[in-house]
């Protein structure tokens, strides 16, 4: 899975996520993102491209969060679409992942 990545003063920004994050690609997403996150504890994910997420997709996001926390880092996400937000709220992910409106807010929140 290909992502766009950018490093701004030690904050790692990932964008260009797949449009759909479901059981068919969640494992691939989880492993591919884990590879590029080594030694990068401060991460921002741009969710604007994700139009649909399911429970497996949520699981992949939680795995990413846990990995970063294990490194003493943090995960911030922004530009979450409506369906994704509804599912996050259903499984209470909004309580464990910082969700911000814009890329600037997300970067500034570190």
């Amino acid at each position: 899975m290909k992502f766009n990545t950018e490093d701004i003063d030690g904050i790692f920004i990932i964008s260009d996520l797949p449009k759909i994050l479901d059981a068919s690609n969640a494992i691939e997403f989880k492993t591919d993102i884990a590879k590029i996150l080594e030694n990068r504890p401060k991460v921002v994910i741009d969710m604007s491209t994700v139009a649909f997420i399911d429970s497996a997709g949520c699981g992949a996001m939680i795995a990413t969060l846990r990995m970063l926390k294990g490194m003493g880092g943090a995960l911030k996400i922004f530009a979450v679409q409506k369906q994704v937000r509804s599912v996050f709220e259903l499984v209470r992910m909004h309580k464990i992942i910082d969700i911000l409106n814009t890329r600037e807010e997300a970067v500034d929140s570190f």
Partner: peptide, 20 residues
Amino acid sequence: QPVFDGSKEDGFGLHIIAHT
């Protein structure tokens, strides 16, 4: 039962079905 504290990555499917 689903766990919502971030310690579990799975077990949300049924919860989503039942609440949707």
